[in-house]
């Protein structure tokens, strides 16, 4: 005799509660903890690749660093000379403004080498030069070296961590929002850019952090004093075109090319081979300040900026094996 299925002996079936792990229900969804993308390699292969990677990287460490010092001091001297020349009326202001923008932006590159002690390490004879290069390079953007170094090293230690990476506030969904955010983050009431850095330094509370905060305050007050003094003495346009505007252009350019472009998208990408992207810059290698190969810098900060491109092509096959998307850049090094 057939049973009436609706009756089922009078019992109404409740949905079955699965056990802690039910293989039949495992659809391979997102894990409970965000895990890095697997490269599908066993640990022996990983170890061999890492050894080869270190061997290659070793060849690109060091090299001639004096051009960074010459560029830093030469550009700083040129920029400072613009002020008396402008006051005396000997300067083509639009051209000087353009050059000041380049100096303000490029200064970060020389300072960046000093942040990683690539010009001279602690205890070396030329250590003073390393510190001096760092100190003068970022004055045009009103960003003291002490703060720049601490924040940049924190960025390296905690790259793409939403709570610990000081540069995480630069994240934006696309390039035009990223450019907008470089400006938005500098607004006085927004916790981004230098305001974010100041808050992090206050929370750190170390002697180095306190010194960095003090130097930041002094440099900002000096910047304002120069702007106000020049302006009320009839040189407001000169002050605007030689310092105020180049500072803003430089900060936006640096934030876009050195922070957003190589690290977007940041969310969940904290692994060694995934926290930095390879990308093809529309403005080319020099104008993007070598940032297309920024992944090499994050893997080996001791490789100077001008050698990261060569290092990338030497270890491209390793990066590809480790799951890095190498497709944005050509397989063969161009000029």
């Amino acid at each position: 005799m057939l049973e009436d299925p609706k009756l089922d002996h009078g019992a109404i079936k409740a949905p079955v509660e699965p056990a802690l792990y039910e293989p039949a229900l495992d659809t391979g969804g997102a894990p409970a903890l965000p895990l890095g993308r697997s490269d599908g390699l066993d640990r022996h292969t990983r170890r061999d690749l890492r050894k080869e990677e270190i061997e290659i990287a070793r060849q690109f460490h060091g090299g001639r660093m004096w051009p960074y010092a010459v560029a830093a001091f030469g550009c700083f001297a040129l920029w400072v000379s613009f002020f008396p020349l402008a006051i005396m009326g000997y300067l083509n202001l639009p051209l000087a403004c353009l050059i000041s923008c380049v100096i303000a932006t490029g200064g970060y590159v020389t300072s960046h080498e000093a942040m990683h002690s690539n010009i001279a390490r602690k205890g070396e004879k030329l250590r003073w030069l390393n510190e001096a290069v760092g100190a003068v390079s970022t004055i045009p953007i009103v960003f003291p070296f002490s703060m720049a170094r601490i924040m940049h090293l924190e960025h390296h230690y905690h790259c793409n961590d939403p709570l610990k990476d000081p540069d995480y506030t630069d994240e934006a969904p696309n390039w035009w929002m990223a450019i907008y955010k470089t400006w938005y983050n500098r607004q006085p009431g927004v916790d981004g850019s230098i305001h974010h850095y100041k808050r992090i330094l206050s929370e750190m509370g170390t002697p180095e952090a306190k010194r960095a905060l003090k130097e930041t305050m002094l440099l900002q007050l000096f910047f304002m004093a120069v702007l106000f003094t020049m302006s009320w003495n009839g040189y407001a346009i000169e002050a605007a075109l030689l310092w105020w505007l180049p500072r803003h252009v430089g900060l936006s350019y640096i934030r876009f090319y050195l922070s957003w472009a190589p690290h977007h998208p940041r969310e969940g990408k904290t692994g060694r081979y995934e926290n930095t992207n390879l990308f093809k810059s529309k403005l080319g290698h020099v104008m993007s300040m070598g940032m297309q190969y920024h992944i090499i810098h994050h893997m080996y900060p001791g490789i100077p900026n001008h050698r990261t491109k060569h290092a990338y092509y030497a270890m491209r096959h390793i990066l590809e094996a480790r799951g890095v998307d190498v497709s944005p850049l050509p397989a063969v090094k161009g000029n």
């Binding site: 006085p188 305050m217 900002q220 007050l221 304002m224 702007l227 106000f228 302006s231 009320w232 009839g234 407001a236 346009i237 002050a239 605007a240 105020w244």
Partner: peptide, 22 residues
């Protein structure tokens, strides 16, 4: 306090003469 009021100081210290001279 100086940094709190800095935008106002910037307004009269820099923006005002910049507007006038332009």
């Amino acid at each position: 306090q100086i940094f709190y009021w800095m935008p106002f100081l910037f307004g009269i210290g820099f923006i005002a003469p910049l507007i006038a001279q332009t």
